[in-house]
């Protein structure tokens, strides 16, 4: 199965592991990820303004490229996924934004939100299937108690993201079960870690990340998994000393394809 793949800026740099383990795992699962040529950074945060078009164009280019190849588009970084999915929804539902984006881009074929954007986790759930994934696990993480950290980007706004129930999700928990570990459900798993303000308000970011980690630790999570490089950056500095991993690293480990 071949998919277009949008890695995003951070996965080429500070979050190389998130990308590398995803590629190794995909290969092991028979999924081909074709990286979009000349992709541009999505901007890291969805531009909500109705009157801006420039900030949405890089996403539209990537979406249109996947459409041109007739493929679904796989994302991995939570932020990229959020931005691409929300911009795609604009192209599908907001006539004004769609018209202006097309007028500006002058693509060979107009783009109207046709591409299906799926997160790597959704690919595991909907294409591979967690039961089938479980069978492919050679190195189950038996006994590990793992807290899934969704953060804000994967689930919200629920109407657009449509990944899971935004208040009581289970996709990551099911993933954790599939790789042989035990999911720990804790209430802060879908609350923001404060990563966005960690540049200029270190104190607020620390307060948010500790609230998340304390909650996970309180319910006896030994480690947390995330799909977001910014969450990783912020969360791993938590005072409860709960280690944080990219979910792809644990996947690669369970599939026995993680290099030493």
């Amino acid at each position: 199965m071949v998919y277009s793949y949008y890695p995003g800026c951070t996965l080429k740099n500070k979050a190389k592991d998130l990308d590398r383990y995803a590629r190794l795992s995909a290969q092991a699962l028979g999924i081909t990820l074709e990286e979009i040529e000349n992709w541009q950074c999505c901007g890291g945060v969805y531009p909500m303004a109705k009157d801006e078009i420039a900030t949405k164009l890089s996403s539209v280019r990537a979406l249109a490229d996947a459409k041109a190849h007739g493929r679904d588009l796989i994302t991995l970084c939570s932020a990229c996924h959020n931005v691409l999915k929300q911009v795609n929804n604009d192209m599908l539902t907001d006539e004004d934004i769609c018209t202006r984006a097309n007028n500006y881009l002058k693509l060979d074929e107009e783009y109207h939100g046709e591409t299906k954007v799926i997160h790597f986790l959704e690919m595991l759930r909907d294409v591979i299937g967690f039961d089938a994934l479980k069978e492919k696990v050679t190195n189950p993480l038996t006994g590990k108690k793992i807290g899934a950290y969704y953060g804000c980007l994967l689930l919200r706004p629920g109407k657009v993201m449509q990944m899971d129930d935004p208040e009581n999700p289970k996709i990551m928990e099911d993933f954790i079960r599939a790789i042989g570990a035990e999911p720990v459900i804790y209430p802060m798993r879908n609350e923001c870690c404060g990563g966005y303000v960690s540049l200029e308000d270190k104190e607020a970011a620390a307060k948010r990340r500790n609230a998340v980690a304390d909650s996970a630790a309180g319910f006896e999570a030994e480690l947390m998994v995330t799909a977001c490089p910014l969450c990783m950056y912020n969360l791993k500095k938590n005072d409860s000393n709960v280690p944080v991993y990219y979910f792809t690293e644990l996947l690669a480990e369970a599939l026995g394809v993680k290099e030493n």
Binding site: K14, A15, G44, V45, C77, L199, Y233
Partner: peptide, 27 residues
């Protein structure tokens, strides 16, 4: 709110690109 010359002081070795691009987009 955020100017390029402020950045060196605010980042560390591990600051992800994502944080910078989003901060510039927002601020």
């Amino acid at each position: 709110h955020l100017k390029a010359e402020m950045v060196p002081e605010l980042i560390d070795d591990e600051t992800p690109q994502q944080l910078l691009v989003s901060a510039f987009r927002k601020f």
